[in-house]
Amino acid sequence: MIKITNLHANVEGKEILKGINLEVHAGEIHAIMGPNGSGKSTLASVITGRDNFEVTQGEIDFEGKDLLEMSPEDRANSGIFLSFQYPVEIPGVSMTNFMKAAVNEQRKYNGLEPLKAAEFLKMMREKAALTGMDSALVNRPVNEGFSGGEKKRNEIFQMAILDPKLAILDETDSGLDIDALRIVSEGVNKLKTPDKALILITHYQRLLDYIVPDFVHVLYKGKIVKSAGRELALELEKKGYDWLKDLEI
């Protein structure tokens, strides 16, 4: 589905990603772990096309398309979704208007007519129920005054609505208590189908108790230094990240 080859990227002139290689197929769940500052969030930003990240080398192929040539909105409309580590508050824009705009742009991209108001509202209700999103929040401005847990749940709610092929969850577990983590994870698991893929970016292994990955990668100093099955996450939990310092990179 997505193939990242020798990806190098700079932020403000400083090289953060130093040759990432990663291939994710439909149906797979990949976890990317690593200490703070290793480049995990940068990778998510580069995949989704955030400004001020400069790709100096390498390529990203998403279903045969050169992703790096596409605008952020086209990437989203082709099926990539990022659950933000810090979801943004947008005063004055209601969740309903926000999602209506997003859904209809996605439909336009795919050559479909805009959804009728009644159909759209029905979908909003269904997806809110599926992801445990409080329907009162749906009428409020995007993320404004939401608690940390509500913001993260809102990300999963948006994911349910936009139904991406590839979802990247960036530190979705951070700031969540154990109950919120369970609810958010249940939401993610409900959305999982064999034709979709998931990349989990996480610092801790506890999210992986709820969303079980097929592959675990360790990112360190801008490179993937180790890849293995889910047992690697448990090993990291025991050993921490200190052992990475001994690796020659």
């Binding site: 989203a76 409309n77 990022l82 933000f84 943004v88 947008i90 926000f98 705009a101 991209y109």
Partner: peptide, 9 residues
């Protein structure tokens, strides 16, 4: 960017 990442131009 948040909105663009949801497909909005």
């Amino acid at each position: 960017f948040y909105m663009q990442s949801r497909g909005i131009s």
